[in-house]
Design a protein around this nucleic acid. Sequence first.
DNA 1: TATGAATGAGGGTTCATTCAT
DNA 2: GATGAATGAACCCTCATTCAT
Lengths: 213, 213, 213, 213
Amino acid sequence: MSPKFVDRKQKIKDIAQTALCLFSQRGYAATSVEQIAEAATIGKGTVYEYFKTKEDLLVAAVQEWVDQGEIQISAIVEGIDDPVVRLHSFVRRNMKLFNPENSNNLHANRFYIELLQQTFMEGGAFYNKHDLLKEFRSKIRIILVDILLDGISKGIFKPEIARDAEKYAINLMAYLNGIGQYALTTKESLEYKTLVEFHMKNFLTLILTDTEE
Amino acid sequence: MSPKFVDRKQKIKDIAQTALCLFSQRGYAATSVEQIAEAATIGKGTVYEYFKTKEDLLVAAVQEWVDQGEIQISAIVEGIDDPVVRLHSFVRRNMKLFNPENSNNLHANRFYIELLQQTFMEGGAFYNKHDLLKEFRSKIRIILVDILLDGISKGIFKPEIARDAEKYAINLMAYLNGIGQYALTTKESLEYKTLVEFHMKNFLTLILTDTEE
Amino acid sequence: MSPKFVDRKQKIKDIAQTALCLFSQRGYAATSVEQIAEAATIGKGTVYEYFKTKEDLLVAAVQEWVDQGEIQISAIVEGIDDPVVRLHSFVRRNMKLFNPENSNNLHANRFYIELLQQTFMEGGAFYNKHDLLKEFRSKIRIILVDILLDGISKGIFKPEIARDAEKYAINLMAYLNGIGQYALTTKESLEYKTLVEFHMKNFLTLILTDTEE
Amino acid sequence: MSPKFVDRKQKIKDIAQTALCLFSQRGYAATSVEQIAEAATIGKGTVYEYFKTKEDLLVAAVQEWVDQGEIQISAIVEGIDDPVVRLHSFVRRNMKLFNPENSNNLHANRFYIELLQQTFMEGGAFYNKHDLLKEFRSKIRIILVDILLDGISKGIFKPEIARDAEKYAINLMAYLNGIGQYALTTKESLEYKTLVEFHMKNFLTLILTDTEE
DNA sequence: TATGAATGAGGGTTCATTCAT
DNA sequence: GATGAATGAACCCTCATTCAT
């Protein structure tokens, strides 16, 4: 009549987070359900009370990963007025996420690689299900385009970039992804920062309105 | 004098190529040694005559992958004089490699993801062995820097970019990597081409000497 | 005075009936306690309030099965005077029970098979406990023998079969069991009925007193 | 070039026989693949070199069971001229097979019960695949009908039973099955023999031509 | 050298049972 | 009493690797 109360939603989230962490560290295939159970300090069988299969765990981990990413983006870009500052804020978030010095955030980056694997490798959990990635990217792209258009309306960015705003956004995202993976190979974050800042300087050169004296 | 020796080398190469192909398709973990043996039309035990472990197979596959990549780059950039054309040639090679319409070349791109996995995931075959990636990138970077410096010396690229040539090169590579992964999610190569060309146009805007009439 | 007590007995019966139903459908091994709990619309833990182990559930299900079988036999044979009619009535009950067209009654037959399993297979719940089967058969045999002896005393059955009455009874039961299992493999009940009627005609030929004109 | 020679066909047969033995003893569900491997003195993994799944093992065991049954029937009925003797021979084979004193032959009988389970229980390996049983019965029925028709043609059995030969055959088989299962519950084979002989005496009474002096 | 038979460690999953509420 | 969350033993199956031929 009054069984043990358990917040299933929370427990699911807890386990998913643990799974996300381990999947990020060792990869999906190399992580056993038992390891996840141990890390979550529960029994192996308990995992299956909350997830039907290991693959479901991966799906939940992805959700967790997406959620965490979005929270940070929304939080970081919000409440800023200056488009340039917003842009830098956005980029800095990316840098924080991919900063090799921040071991915690290594996870997010490594999990992205795992996600690519699962999406593009035959037999992967999300094989050819590109929607997941597309949706994720779409959300970020919208934020970026927003910043650009806002900057244009404020007269800070060149008006002629409006029709190419999407291209600018996608390319910027692509670059940030690429340089993030590049940065994984170096322990020195200085180089990473320098490179991104260099890219942003050039990027701004292209889109800022010419301010002559 | 040593006819078997040549045969052996070739066989190793054959098996490695087969392994590369399968690893690219299904990923390292999901590919069994037996599958590789079958695909190479040899016995399962024979694989172990040429490779001590499955991991060794991966190492050899990586070597194969690197070799194939380099051959294409060297071949494509060589014998061209105009730095702009060389640049475009270099980029086009990347586009061909990552072109989602060219299913054959999907492999190279997917294998790169596998390589990232094996390098950054704990327990991966190349865990923390960044040298492999670094070396690979280094070779390409050198080619890119060469093109830039050549362009400067020919008065086609701005002389002031000389000291930032490395940064330009790395950032361009990062972008090409990132957009390549982005392109994997779309079947339309048109978008991919358009985006890269857009990026290149902007890139050239930054580095071309101002040519006023 | 003890209202809970009655409730408890009824609940045990309810659960046992549910278990009987599921065991008959899927078999003992393939039926999980959780499935039984669900089908009985109670909690999984509640089952263990009424039964110590899953095996106890099987024992109770057997009891339920025996009870149901007996009720039908007693009910059907009672109140009939003509021994031949009683015999036919008895057989018809068997036919109803094993009639493949009556899907509900499939259960009883299938559960009998399960019972054989549990009795003859090493490690079965009733391994080598033949008493259960013997007792069940004994009860039916007594009814059959009764009918035969009654028929003899009424001058309808040959008096010389009296000393073989038990053998006739056992053999008839064996046949009915065998043909019932045979019938399980056919959707056509016509064949089944025809066969049983044919057997009964022959059987009666043997035991009926010769009635000359 | 000359790998270890193994008679795969024979090995498959060996493992299947071991499986048949264990399935007969403990039942399919209660027998683990590891137990079969141990009994066959091979490694657990080796079983899977010869059988894709545990269910395949069951299928092979069934085949083994069918083969063994048939061999005995054919062998025992062949070369006998007198239809009555052939009939008795056939029945005796059944008696031997089901004789509770012959522990070896217990197997065959118990496995038949397992087979019924797998055929009639939802989720069983042969659920609703009645063909297996039908075919098996069909073969035996044909032999029985042959004996009857032969007896008729020899003037030993009544000619009028010809059109009911099939019914007689099926009913006899059903009885033998039923009494066989009945016999499983008793250690005394005497009773079993007596019952069968009694049945056969009655059976012959029905079908033998009336031989008046 | 080439092979494939053999193996056992290890992984995903199920489920009877316990127990805190 | 009633519940369902928790558990771990035990299952089926895979696969890298070894080895006899």
